[in-house]
Design a protein around this nucleic acid. Sequence first.
DNA 1: ACTTGACTTAAAGTTAACTTTAACTTGTAT
DNA 2: ATACAAGTTAAAGTTAACTTTAAGTCAAGT
Lengths: 149, 149
Amino acid sequence: MSYSIKEIAKIMGITPSTLRYYDSEGLLPNVKKVNGRRVFEDKDFKWLRVLNCMKNINMPIKKIKEYVKLAQKGDATLQERYNLILQQKESIQKQINELNTCLKEFEFKEWYYKTAIEAGTEKVVENISSISPTLEIDKIPKNYKKEGK
Amino acid sequence: MSYSIKEIAKIMGITPSTLRYYDSEGLLPNVKKVNGRRVFEDKDFKWLRVLNCMKNINMPIKKIKEYVKLAQKGDATLQERYNLILQQKESIQKQINELNTCLKEFEFKEWYYKTAIEAGTEKVVENISSISPTLEIDKIPKNYKKEGK
DNA sequence: ACTTGACTTAAAGTTAACTTTAACTTGTAT
DNA sequence: ATACAAGTTAAAGTTAACTTTAAGTCAAGT
């Protein structure tokens, strides 16, 4: 089975232009061309899924290109690719942790506004602040000293 | 207790320039000025934490500004702010889900490369692909029909 | 009085990731 | 044969989110 750029774009939820841009940046290796047109085959899907993942975790295009280039060099770069994957795994974990902390903050806000709406005014809740510390600020001890030279 | 822009920047892990930029975009309401200089007080911290959260969940500055403006209008906008919070909560959930799916993909890759490195070559594993479907691609039924007009 | 260091603004510059435009090719339908 | 739809490239344009620069203010220390 083979697919046109339009079909692949639809499946990936992006525009054909973006796919062409990715190709121009070297993110789509091994994509065939027939009569000058890109033709995507089943084997390309495996990579498209990974590419999609890499985009989802906010890997910059430069970094993805780096990975693609390593992969094209074959077995000699296995260790390097492994390291890159581990590094990205950590980054994902960090992002998930951050999002979970923020989710708590937003759950607090949800309660905050629900309560305020019921009371008709924010005054009822405005001195209450979320407990979850997301910022260094919340970790500052009470006797925090500013740095003096 | 009051803090200079430099101290706040350090605490938030950004540069003073970025804080000034945020201020110029209206993201730092109610920040005092003494002799033309910004002075941050304890009461500003509550908002800085929320701002930090909003940045972490990739809320665009425009959207954050929108929220700030609503908040400044007082009780009349409680419902609107509540809705905005709910909307963002959903967005966070979606992001967490995406990241978790990608984490699985990367955990597969970790195994993939570990196995390949042990064997000395990728050939041992290269036909195996992760099972977790992250892309519409993986949900396409075998008898997928392209659209015909 | 003068230098220093930390601040200020306004405006221009940067970067990443697209997006749009313009001019062109090609296979299919009428 | 001709028109049309869908693709192509190269290059210019856009947008968000900063970052840098230049020129200036201000309080404290020597």
